[in-house]
C-alpha cells in the first residue's frame, strides 16, 4: 500500500466530515441566512479537502480534479450571494432574536426596492 493512498484517504475523510457538518448545519439552523452560513460554506472547505484528498489518491487525474475544485471555489460564493439577496428581496424574515437588520432599515425610508444592478 502506497503512502499517498493513506494520506489521500485521510484528507478525504476530513473533508467528508466538513461536508457532513455543513448538512447538519442546514438541518439545525433556525432561519435561511444562518442555514446558508453553515451550509454553503462548510461545504466549500469540505469540497476543497475532499477533492485534494482524491487527487492525492489518484495523482494522474489531479489536473482535472483541480479544475473541478477551482470551479466550485469560484461559483459557490456567487450562487449563495445571489440566493441571499433574492431571499432578502423576497422578504424572507430573519430568525427571532436577530440583533439588527441594517439593510431593511436602509431600504424602508426609500420606499421599497432600490434599483438593481
Amino acid at each position: 500500500m502506497a503512502a499517498h493512498h493513506l494520506a489521500g484517504a485521510l484528507l478525504t475523510l476530513l473533508g467528508a466530515l466538513f461536508l457532513f457538518l455543513g448538512a447538519l448545519g442546514i438541518v439545525r439552523m433556525p432561519d435561511l441566512y444562518n442555514r446558508m452560513q453553515a451550509g454553503t460554506k462548510a461545504t466549500t472547505l469540505g469540497n476543497i479537502l475532499t477533492l485534494a484528498g482524491l487527487a492525492l489518491y489518484h495523482p494522474s487525474w489531479a489536473l482535472k480534479i483541480g479544475v473541478i475544485a477551482l470551479f466550485v471555489l469560484v461559483t459557490n460564493p456567487l450562487s449563495s450571494h445571489a440566493l441571499a439577496r433574492a431571499a432578502h428581496g423576497a422578504g424572507v424574515p430573519l430568525t427571532e432574536g436577530s440583533v439588527s437588520d441594517a439593510l431593511a432599515e436602509d431600504l424602508s425610508p426609500e420606499g421599497g426596492e432600490a434599483v438593481e444592478s
Partner: peptide, 23 residues
C-alpha cells in the same frame, strides 16, 4: 428559498461523491 439552499448544499456534497465514485 430554503429549499433552494438545501438543493445547493445537496449538489455541493454530490460533486465530491461523484469524484469519489470515479476514483
Amino acid at each position: 428559498p430554503s429549499r433552494a439552499v438545501a438543493l445547493d448544499v445537496l449538489t455541493l456534497i454530490t460533486i465530491p461523491l461523484l469524484v469519489g465514485a470515479a476514483v
